[in-house]
């Protein structure tokens, strides 16, 4: 979605190299990165290797930006948040549950690429405990079991949850969480399905105990 990410890899790289924001620290590795990925296509550079401002700043500050940089990231990322055009923030929780378990899609390279059209999901379970029935859940992020039961599903909560999945860094600068909507990894409908998985009272996230 972001215009910045649609720039050609070369332009983005030139910007990075000349940007004072990237600083001396970043430039040490960028030449090394260029050599390592010399065979990457311009599209791969643009979509997978070139850094936008938030990525460059979080890298430079090792995910611990000083307050003024954190504020700058927060502001720029808040400005990118887009709500779905049809206004539907809560979709189908069962579809969201399915997406939460899909960790495939988007792998490239000659060794083990995904076959074309391989399903892409949110892979939420890689990092979050969600429905109590799914025990194979990671813990890089916080536990989300009972998320909706604890918070309710008011329009404000729906909006917050949607925006958080769309761009986590609009709330927590340099969060480890992917910016699923901002980066175009998940569609607005898919994000709405995940919102429902978290907030729908019938969802397995909110069932039991």
């Amino acid at each position: 979605m972001s215009v910045r990410r649609r720039l050609s890899g070369l332009v983005a790289l030139t910007m990075l190299a000349s940007s004072s924001m990237a600083g001396a620290a970043g430039s040490l590795t960028e030449a090394i990165v260029r050599e390592a990925f010399a065979t990457a296509t311009p599209e791969e550079w643009r979509d997978r290797l070139a850094q936008d401002d938030a990525q460059a700043l979080c890298s430079q500050h090792r995910n611990q930006p000083p307050p003024e940089v954190a504020a700058q990231i927060l502001e720029s990322q808040r400005a990118t948040v887009r709500l779905p055009e049809d206004g539907r923030l809560m979709g189908d929780w069962r579809a969201g549950e399915k997406l939460a378990g899909i960790g495939t899609g988007g792998h490239i390279g000659r060794i083990q690429p995904d076959p074309p059209g391989r399903a892409k999901g949110g892979n939420c379970y890689a990092c979050h405990v969600m429905a109590p029935g799914e025990v194979a859940a990671g813990n890089i992020g916080p536990t989300l079991t009972g998320y909706g039961r604890l918070r309710g599903n008011t329009p404000e909560m729906q909006r917050y949850t949607y925006e958080k999945i769309h761009n986590a860094q609009a709330f927590f600068p340099c969060s480890h969480m992917p910016r699923f909507g901002h980066n175009g990894w998940l569609s607005p409908k898919e994000i709405a399905d995940l919102v429902a998985f978290l907030l729908d009272p019938e969802s397995s996230v909110n069932a039991g105990r």
Partner: peptide, 12 residues
């Protein structure tokens, strides 16, 4: 530095 270098569609 590389250890912390974020890029790509998942910001990893």
């Amino acid at each position: 530095e590389l250890f912390f270098r974020r890029s790509g569609p998942l910001d990893f």
